[in-house]
Amino acid sequence: MNAVIFGWLAGSTAVFMAANSALKLYAQNGGLWMLTLALALFCVGNACMVQVMRANGLGIALSLSLVFQLIAITLVALVVFGERPTAMQLAGMALGVVAVGLIAIGGRG
């Protein structure tokens, strides 16, 4: 993955983090405008992902995106919303990182 595609992936992750945060705020406080913002951000994030899919294929792109989002949104949940994942959830995240690493390495062989 070159730097430009990695940039698209990082950008989409940032947009998805904002979208998920807006959706959490909507779930807590309501407000149609917050739901509308979340949905608009999800659309932008998916549009960014198209570039990653073109370069790496659907499977690799979505696997990378999901693990990036998993880690990033967990950090947001910890820092902003005060949520604490259980040990089992942290182990699942670690397995996800290992799985995507194996997928990425497998593509080079």
Rank of each mutant, 00 (worst) to 15 (best):
A87T: 15
L102Q: 05
L25R: 10
F81Q: 04
L95M: 15
M53Y: 09
T36S: 11
N2D: 13
G109W: 15
L75Q: 07
A72Y: 10
M53W: 06
S63E: 09
G30M: 00
V44T: 02
A10F: 12
A19E: 03
M1T: 08
V98P: 11
A91C: 13
V100C: 11
G31Q: 05
P85R: 01
V52L: 08
I103P: 02
M1W: 07
M34H: 04
R108K: 12
F16G: 02
F6P: 00
S65P: 06
L75H: 07
A22T: 02
M1Q: 08
N46R: 08
V50T: 14
T36H: 12
L32T: 11
N20C: 01
G11I: 01
L41S: 05
A40V: 01
Y26L: 00
L41P: 01
N46K: 04
A47S: 14
R84P: 04
L41W: 04
G107Q: 14
V50Y: 12
Q69N: 15
A94T: 15
N46F: 12
M34C: 05
L37R: 00
W33V: 10
M93D: 10
G30K: 01
M53K: 08
G101T: 05
P85H: 03
T36G: 10
A47G: 13
M88H: 15
N29H: 09
V97N: 07
Q51H: 14
V98I: 14
T13P: 13
A14P: 01
Q89L: 08
S12H: 05
A18I: 03
R54M: 13
A19V: 02
M34Q: 10
